[in-house]
Computed example of a mutant assay.
Amino acid sequence: MDKATTYDDALGDLFAKNAETSPHNAYTDRPAMLKLAGDVSGARILDVGCGAGHYAAELSARGAQVVGVEGSATLLRHARARLNGDAELLLHDLEEPLDFAADASFDGVVCALVFHHVRNRARLLDELRRVLRPGGWLLISVTHPTADWHHFGGSYFSHDWSDLAVADGKFSIHYQRMPLETFLGELLAAGFVLEKLIEPRPTAGLREIDEARYDKLHRAPSFLAVKLQRP
């Protein structure tokens, strides 16, 4: 991944802190993805773009053997502190082949809110299919295309690389917009079978601390999440 899409330095520190308790990460995407994963006890799982290790920590606590890969040295430092040796964590550019992993060596793959940052998504999907065992599952979440359309305007069908301002404009997150047909089309073209698609809403816990944000995220989708199977 190029520098523009990697959460390094101060942006990485900010993301690691916000992901701990933010309405979008802690109360919306992460609970939805973990629910899609289901029972992971004894499973070997690859966490692609593991960020600050929040998903890996949850999966490990539920009995999974986790290997996390991350392109940001800053985020990987946070992940190592959070996991404290409970997962294997590797610095790896997702634009490159997953040459550290053998064929059919994982039962599941989690790719949370990173897919839209990758330029060579076709190669990444080919690699994920290669390292998954037959019958293994792939979880992917992305920014919801209608949320992007609402925020950036223009055409819903835009494939523009865009910059989303965060922290009152101090930083920006660089990623590619894509309509639903592109997102699903790429996954199906890579040979995966769609099992379930959801538009995550925040859990009830958010209502207790921020009722306005809870109501807003129940009216307009922020993320899209899918579970697929490798035949």
Rank of each mutant, 00 (worst) to 15 (best):
N120D: 13
V131F: 08
R129K: 14
S141M: 12
S105A: 14
R119S: 13
D103F: 03
R123G: 05
H151I: 14
F106T: 03
A104Q: 15
V118F: 07
S105K: 13
G153D: 10
A147L: 14
R121Q: 10
R129D: 14
H151L: 15
S155I: 10
D107G: 10
T143G: 07
F115Q: 04
I140D: 00
H117L: 15
G108E: 02
V118R: 06
F106P: 00
H116W: 01
G108D: 02
H150I: 06
G153N: 08
W137R: 07
R121T: 13
R123A: 14
R119H: 11
L128M: 15
H117A: 15
W149K: 06
E127P: 00
A122Q: 09
D107V: 06
A112N: 10
L139R: 03
D148G: 02
L124D: 04
I140L: 11
S141P: 00
L125D: 00
L138W: 01
F157A: 12
D107E: 04
R133D: 01
V118N: 04
F157R: 14
H117I: 14
V131I: 14
D107L: 14
V131T: 06
L113H: 04
L125E: 01
R133F: 01
C111V: 05
G153V: 07
R129N: 12
D103P: 00
P134H: 09
I140Y: 01
